[in-house]
Amino acid sequence: MPEPTIQEPVSELDLMAYVDDQLDPERRIAVEDHLSRHPVLAAQIMDDLRQRDELRLALSEAASTISDHRLELPAQRLGRRLSLRIALHRNRRAIAASILVGAGWLAHSMFGGVGADPASAAHILPVYADEAVEAYRNVLVEARYDAVPWGRGEQERIAAPAADAGATIPLPHLPAAFAPVASHPVSAGGSNAVQMLIHGPDDELLTLFAVETDSFSIEPPHAEAVRDVNVAYWQSGWFAYVLSGTGDQKELLSLASRLSR
């Protein structure tokens, strides 16, 4: 093994990167050590640093004299759109979490000993409640701005972006009173999943999460309230469904029953 070099010589590029604050601490110290032994060079570097600071100040001063008046409106519009992008990004993560609420609850109620009683779902829901509610609210915000950037909904089968490209999730047949607005494939813990945005019979906004499970079962819908958002779960074969909305819990259960037939 060759002996490690004690110190590589300081180069012009090092000096430039020093001025631009782009060196790691170790190299920075080496450059400073070098400069301490070369006062002429140190003075030049100081000049470069001063020049950099003067440029920042000069441009800032000149730029700040220009009124932002003309920018207010476009900046507001852009800010709103970017906020929605952020909300959507969070929403996608929250959707995955809220699907787990449904899938977890189903698995728990079907296979878990103490979880056989649907009431025990209340112990599971609060774990994801915030994200589930946030997901639904984000959808509402996006819908309000007509900014849901998903593909148009397909009522029957929508391909999900899973490792198995051939995998699809059967979505319930929507009665005529339900109008699909958009659909968005998501990945939930390695499972195929789809979120659909639906206008209900009274034009209320609903989200339907559909997720592939690893257990076959037929379970009728059950409803739970998570603060101001109601959710209804059911399972049909290998697939679990979670319907969310702000309407009356009984009504949501009734809608879920219509969808689950």
Binding site: E8, P9, S11, E12, L13, A17, Q22, L23, D24, R27
Partner: peptide
């Protein structure tokens, strides 16, 4: 200056 080692960019 003619001998330029790699930069340690952070």
């Amino acid at each position: 200056s003619s001998h330029r080692p790699d930069l340690r960019l952070v």
